[in-house]
Amino acid sequence: MSYLAKSPWLIHYDGSSCNGCDIEVLACLTPMYDVERFGIINTGNPKHADILAITGSVNEQNIPIIKNIYDQMLEPKVVIAIGICATSGGIFRECYNVQGGVDQVIPVDVYIPGCAARPESIIDGVVKGLGVLEEKYKKYGKKR
C-alpha cells in the first residue's frame, strides 16, 4: 500500500482543446465538486505531479510540449485523456492540423468521453486513474 492514491497531484495541459473540457477540469477544483476531498491538488509543475490530465487533441506544435511535460514527471505517473478530442480528435478529427488523440504521442491510461466531459465523469475517470497509479507503483517498486 502506498500513499499515491491518497495524494494524487494533478497537472493539466490544454492541447488543442476548445476550453470546454479545460474549464470543466478547473470546475472540478471549485466548491461544487472540490476534488481536494481526495487530496488532489492542481499543481502547475510537472515535477510535482502524478497525474497528467490532457484535454484536446495533439498537433505538430504541441507534441514536443506534451512529451516534455510527460518526461519531466517523476515515476510513477498516469496520463488521463479528458474529452473526446483528447481520445480521438473528436469533431476536429478531420482538420488538417489535428493529428488525433493523445495516445499518438504518449501512453494514455484512462480515456474520459464526453464533449465537454462533465465534472462527474472527470472525477470518475481520475478515480479510475488512481487504481492504475497504484498498480504502476507496485511495478515501479519492484524495479527499484
Binding site: 490544454d14 492541447g15 488543442s16 482543446s17 484536446g56 487533441s57 498537433n59 506544435q61 504541441n62 510540449i65 476536429f92 478531420e94 482538420c95 488538417y96 492540423n97 489535428v98
Partner: peptide, 14 residues
C-alpha cells in the same frame, strides 16, 4: 502561438 490551431475553418469542405 499556434498550439491550439486546428484549422476548423477548412472543415466546411467536409
Amino acid at each position: 502561438i499556434g498550439y491550439v490551431h486546428r484549422g476548423l475553418e477548412k472543415l466546411v469542405e467536409k
